[in-house]
Amino acid sequence: MKKTSIETYYELFYRWQRSGLSKAAFADREGISKVSFYSWCKKFETKTDSQDTSTGFTRIELAEATAQLAVAKINYPSGISVELLGPLDPDRIKALLF
Rank of each mutant, 00 (worst) to 15 (best):
D49R: 13
K94G: 05
F98H: 15
K23W: 01
F98V: 10
K23N: 04
T8P: 00
S33F: 05
D52Y: 01
L62T: 09
S22N: 02
S39N: 15
D52G: 06
I74V: 15
A65W: 11
P87A: 11
A70H: 02
T66A: 00
G79L: 02
Q51R: 15
I60G: 00
S33A: 08
I74Q: 04
I60Y: 09
T53C: 10
R59A: 07
I80C: 08
D28I: 04
E30D: 02
K73S: 15
A24G: 05
S50N: 15
T46I: 07
K47F: 14
L12H: 01
T66D: 06
L85P: 06
F44S: 03
V35R: 11
T58E: 12
E30Q: 15
L12M: 09
K42H: 15
L62E: 08
D49P: 00
W16P: 02
Q17E: 14
V71R: 11
Q51Y: 11
S39T: 14
I80H: 08
S81Y: 08
T46W: 04
A27M: 03
K34Y: 07
I60L: 14
Y10K: 15
T46S: 15
K73V: 13
T48C: 05
T53M: 09
E83C: 10
S54M: 00
V82N: 02
A95W: 06
E11P: 02
V35S: 13
V35K: 12
K42Q: 15
R29N: 13
C41I: 06
V82F: 07
W40T: 07
G86A: 03
L21A: 08
G56D: 02
Y10D: 10
S54Y: 08
T46N: 14
N75H: 12
K43N: 05
L62P: 07
D89R: 10
I93F: 01
Q51C: 08
A25K: 10
S19K: 04
A67F: 03
A63S: 15
R92G: 14
A72M: 08
F44D: 04
C41L: 09
V82Q: 03
T8G: 01
F13C: 07
E61G: 11
K73D: 10
T53V: 07
L85Q: 05
E45N: 14
A63G: 14
A67V: 03
T66W: 00
R18Q: 11
I93M: 06
D89G: 00
P77M: 04
S50C: 12
T58N: 09
R15L: 11
W40Q: 15
C41Q: 06
E45C: 03
S54C: 05
Y14W: 00
I32L: 10
